[in-house]
Design a binder for these strands. Sequence first.
DNA 1: CTAATTGCAAATGATTTGCAAAATT
DNA 2: AATTTTGCAAATCATTTGCAATTAG
Lengths: 135, 135
Amino acid sequence: MSKPIQRHSRQRQVILEELRMQTTHPTATELHQLAKQRLPNLSLGTVYRNLELLTRTGLIRRLDTRGGEARYDGDCTHHFHVRCLRCGRVNDAHGLSAAPVKEQVQTLDGYRILGYRLEFEGICPTCQKRPTRQR
Amino acid sequence: MSKPIQRHSRQRQVILEELRMQTTHPTATELHQLAKQRLPNLSLGTVYRNLELLTRTGLIRRLDTRGGEARYDGDCTHHFHVRCLRCGRVNDAHGLSAAPVKEQVQTLDGYRILGYRLEFEGICPTCQKRPTRQR
DNA sequence: CTAATTGCAAATGATTTGCAAAATT
DNA sequence: AATTTTGCAAATCATTTGCAATTAG
């Protein structure tokens, strides 16, 4: 189960270029529309496959935590979360203060700021013990 | 178009109680399984409807930014984002740092911390001008 | 009584996947 | 030649919605 060698494809190149041209943080569909102007028979599936690949490679960033179901918390007191990147499990992160962060944000580009989300990412104790299989 | 009066329902009560009992940040399906033990013909649809309602009311928190499509960013330099809660648009938030917060996090419950997500939420300039329709 | 809420099932929306053909190395 | 990557379509997964029946106030 070795990782496949990555080849160079025109569609991947174009998708990356188009994304880099945008400042709007486009969705897969929007990107598909854009890239299609240069590669008329580019399929949406290919866009998805490449966005996933480019994200894994670290060439681009996916803003939204996708995949799987949404999680809910019944505890509304002020606290943050740590999410395991491998198994998806979420734990509470108590005793942290983001006061310094909050202070920096009064107005942002004319936005009226209502709140913020801060979430840590890492590998949970259980997954650290498991054999590291790269996916 | 006035907001509907909220009534009290047994299923909502049970869903809320079960969520509050958990420390695992369960998903809708997990919660459905749990609550079903007390209300055998509780439907998953009702769970979704109530999670949505409870989140709007502020009684619970939804951890994941759901709805719509994922957004991507071709700019991998260190920066954060502001998301408009009304139209979903995302802008960059430069010149901010969560370093002070990160410093507090060396180990968290045994997690190996690899990074964090910080995202601000608010109303964008365009939406501020639009008439405020509550949904 | 009136309107909110439910269960059920079907619909939707986003993303993923199987497969044979095309492209890369 | 060997494998990755593609386009297409069908499949999957999470969530939403329409509707008639039930329930709360």
